[in-house]
Amino acid sequence: MSSLRNAIPRRAHKERSQPSSRKKFGLLEKHKDYVQRAKAFHKKEDTLRRLREKASNRNPDEFYFKMVRTRTVNGVHKPESEANKYTQEELMLMKTQDIGYVLQKLQSERKKVERLNAMLHSIDNQPSNKHVFFAEDRKEAKELQLQAQHAKSEIPLTSDNIPPSIKRKRDRSYRELEERRNRLNQLEKIYMDMTMQKELQKNGKKRKLREDEIVCPTTKPVYKWRAERKR
Score class of each variant (00 low, 15 high):
Asp98Lys: 11
Asn185Asp: 05
Glu178Gly: 03
Val35Ala: 07
Arg50Gly: 11
Pro79Arg: 12
Phe41Gly: 04
Arg181Ala: 04
Ile214Glu: 01
Lys54Cys: 05
Tyr34Cys: 12
Arg110Met: 03
Ala151Gly: 09
Gln97Pro: 04
Leu146Glu: 12
Arg226Asn: 05
Arg58Met: 15
Leu28Asp: 05
Arg11Lys: 13
Arg229Lys: 12
Ser21Lys: 10
Lys44Trp: 03
Asn203Ser: 08
Ala141Arg: 13
Lys205Val: 15
Thr195His: 06
Ile190His: 10
Glu89Ala: 15
Thr87Phe: 08
Asp193Glu: 13
Asn161Gly: 05
Gln186Pro: 00
Pro156Cys: 04
Thr158Met: 08
Leu93Tyr: 12
Lys198Cys: 07
Pro217Gln: 04
Glu199Thr: 13
Val215Ala: 10
Val102Thr: 12
Val68Ile: 15
Glu178Ile: 12
Ile8Cys: 08
Ala7Asp: 11
Asn129Trp: 08
Gln186Leu: 04
Glu154His: 11
Asn182Pro: 00
Pro221Asn: 00
Ile214Asn: 02
Glu199Ser: 13
Glu211Lys: 10
Pro221Ile: 00
Arg231His: 04
Tyr101Arg: 13
Ala40Lys: 09
Tyr223Phe: 15
Thr72His: 07
Ser3Thr: 10
Val35His: 02
Glu178Pro: 01
Ala40Trp: 10
Pro127Gly: 02
Glu15His: 13
Gln197Val: 02
Glu80Ser: 07
Leu4Tyr: 05
Leu209Thr: 04
Lys230Leu: 13
Gly204Glu: 08
Met1Gln: 01
Val222Lys: 02
Lys23Leu: 08
Ile123Arg: 03
His131Cys: 04
Pro60Gly: 08
Glu188Leu: 12
Ser153His: 03
His131Met: 03
Ser128Asn: 10
Ile214Ala: 02
Glu45Val: 12
Glu45Asp: 06
Pro221Cys: 00
Leu157Pro: 03
Lys152Ile: 08
Gln145Arg: 06
Asn59Met: 06
Pro60Thr: 09
Arg11Asn: 02
Lys224Glu: 15
Gln197Asp: 12
Ile123Gln: 04
Arg180Glu: 05
Leu187Ala: 06
Asn125Lys: 15
Arg210Met: 11
Met194Thr: 09
Val132Met: 05
Gln126Ile: 01
Asp98Pro: 00
Glu136Asp: 07
Ala38Gly: 01
Asn117Thr: 03
Arg180Ile: 04
Glu140His: 08
Asp137Pro: 03
Phe63Val: 13
Glu154Ile: 10
Val76Tyr: 06
Leu116Arg: 01
Arg115Thr: 02
Ser17Gly: 12
Ala227Arg: 11
Lys142Pro: 00
Met119Gly: 00
Ile99Glu: 01
Pro164Cys: 03
Pro9Asp: 00
Val215Phe: 14
Gln107Leu: 10
Leu120Glu: 00
Arg49Ser: 09
Ile123Asn: 05
Thr47Pro: 00
Asp212Arg: 07
